[in-house]
């Protein structure tokens, strides 16, 4: 295990080391200590490295991640795993706003709660939140899955496209063009798969599915009050 303390090493040096690291199969993982809310920790990784961060991180941790498996043993700031392409990012604590924003792939697991706009503009990423999410989560979500095991805040899935949202608790309100949809056997099995991959056990019967009513896909004068 390589250990890097951010008290002694800059984020820039850390990220350069992580990007140059050999793939995990043959190489030991990385442990990052003393992050103390630093921004862009482990951002832009490209290889199959394993990174464990002990402590809280600031904005854009694991931003645009490709292939790496990153675990934060703490809370994280805005935009964790933003625009992630692949790999897995796990937050053992809570995540601030815009977690997984515009993520294209891979999996983001937030074991605690997520702030507002979780999964905003998501484009294929799978996000599993163990607790609650804040308002406007799944805003303009295009594709991928957002699983919220607890309650969802106001305006869930506002202007959603083809992403699928599963909520285990209650949704305070739904945003424009977001509707509840039938939980088919196919969706139950997808949800089960998502939860298993996230390492979470939950009662599937509590979950409801939400998605797009597709009424805003083309401008129509009779829907003008929804815009």
């Amino acid at each position: 295990m390589n250990t890097v303390s951010l008290s002694l090493t800059s984020v820039r040096e850390l990220n350069e080391q992580l990007r140059g690291a050999p793939d995990a199969g043959s190489a030991p993982g990385w442990r990052v200590t003393d992050p103390k809310g630093a921004h862009a920790v482990a951002a832009g990784l490209t290889g199959h490295v394993q990174v464990q961060i002990d402590g809280h991180v600031g904005y854009y941790c694991a931003g645009m991640n490709q292939h790496a498996a990153i675990t934060v043993d703490g809370h994280c700031g805005t935009g964790v795993a933003e625009n992630m392409m692949s790999g897995i990012v796990r937050i053992r604590g809570n995540a601030s706003q815009s977690a997984g924003a515009s993520g294209h792939g891979g999996m983001l697991v937030i074991e605690g709660n997520a702030g507002p706009r979780c999964g905003i503009s998501m484009k294929g990423i799978d996000i599993v939140v163990g607790g609650k999410t804040g308002h406007m989560s799944g805003f303009m979500a295009q594709s991928g899955n957002l699983v919220i095991c607890g309650d969802a805040g106001h305006d869930l899935g506002d202007s959603i496209y083809e992403a699928v949202i599963y909520v285990g608790g209650s949704a305070a309100s739904l945003g424009a063009d977001c509707v509840e949809k039938e939980m088919t056997p196919k969706h139950r099995s997808r949800l089960q798969d998502l939860l298993s991959r996230a390492g979470m056990e939950r009662d599937l019967d509590r979950f409801r599915r939400f998605g797009s009513a597709r009424k805003l896909y083309h401008f129509h004068v009779d829907h003008a009050d929804s815009y």
Binding site: A40, A43, E82, I120
Partner: peptide, 29 residues
């Protein structure tokens, strides 16, 4: 379908956030 792109960035608002966003983009590149 009609595509209405967002008018605000999904992961930052305001100049203080933008400074951090720029830092992230520089880290990645």
């Amino acid at each position: 379908i009609d595509q209405r792109s967002a008018c605000r960035h999904p992961d930052w608002t305001g100049p203080d956030d933008l400074a951090i966003k720029i830092q992230e983009l520089r880290e990645i590149t």
